[in-house]
Simulated scan of single mutants.
Amino acid sequence: MREDLKPWYKQFWPWFLIGLLLSSITFSLIYLVVSIRYYDGSVEGDYYKRGLAINEQLAKQEHARALGLEAQVLFDSRTGDVVVDLEGDSRPESLALALVFPTDSDFDRALTLKHVHEGRYVTTLEEPLRYRWYLQLQPETGEQAEWRLTGEISFPSDAPVTLKPGL
């Protein structure tokens, strides 16, 4: 028996292997917590139905094009006013403006604009917006709307945005 043999807890390799195991457990737990907390919900349960609904969206765009619809949207960053000037053959009493955030649906906003005068619709934002947003203008909320105009904007911006038929 050799006397210069150290006990296991004073040697390098057992601690190296234990460290590898503990670090893998630690990182696994961190990734588990992050994946649960920041779940993005990227896969829809009814993805097949949503895929079939693209034809309905195309029909809405074509109907808006047939009516000759186009809209100018102006966001006033100082007052929070949202003004839409709608041109074409449709004058509903109110419009639904959906502000869609590209990466997180929790930030999406829905605004209802009231008709004030010959194609002009107005509403107010509660708080100023930042970053890039997709805009969808319809005569009513939901999938039952007859037509849809789309566009995009990056905030802060005081320049008017033109919404046209299109995806």
Rank of each mutant, 00 (worst) to 15 (best):
R2Q: 02
D4P: 06
F12S: 14
F12Y: 15
F16Q: 05
I18R: 14
L20E: 02
L21N: 09
S24N: 14
T26E: 11
T26K: 11
S28L: 13
I30M: 10
Y31I: 12
V33I: 14
R37G: 08
Y38K: 13
Y38D: 15
Y39S: 12
G41D: 07
E44W: 08
D46A: 07
R50H: 06
G51F: 08
A53M: 04
N55P: 00
L58D: 08
L58Q: 10
A59I: 07
K60F: 01
K60H: 03
K60W: 01
E62N: 13
H63S: 10
L69W: 03
L74P: 00
L74T: 10
D76Y: 06
D76W: 06
G80Q: 05
V82N: 03
V82Q: 02
E87S: 15
E87P: 04
S90E: 14
R91L: 14
L95I: 11
L97G: 02
L97A: 05
L97K: 03
L99T: 04
L99S: 03
S105M: 04
F107S: 10
R109G: 01
A110L: 12
L111A: 11
L113D: 02
L113G: 03
H117V: 07
E118F: 06
G119W: 12
G119F: 10
R120G: 02
Y121T: 06
E127R: 12
E140A: 08
E143V: 15
E143K: 14
E143C: 04
Q144H: 13
E146H: 13
L149H: 06
I153T: 06
I153N: 01
I153K: 01
S154N: 05
V161I: 11
G166A: 11
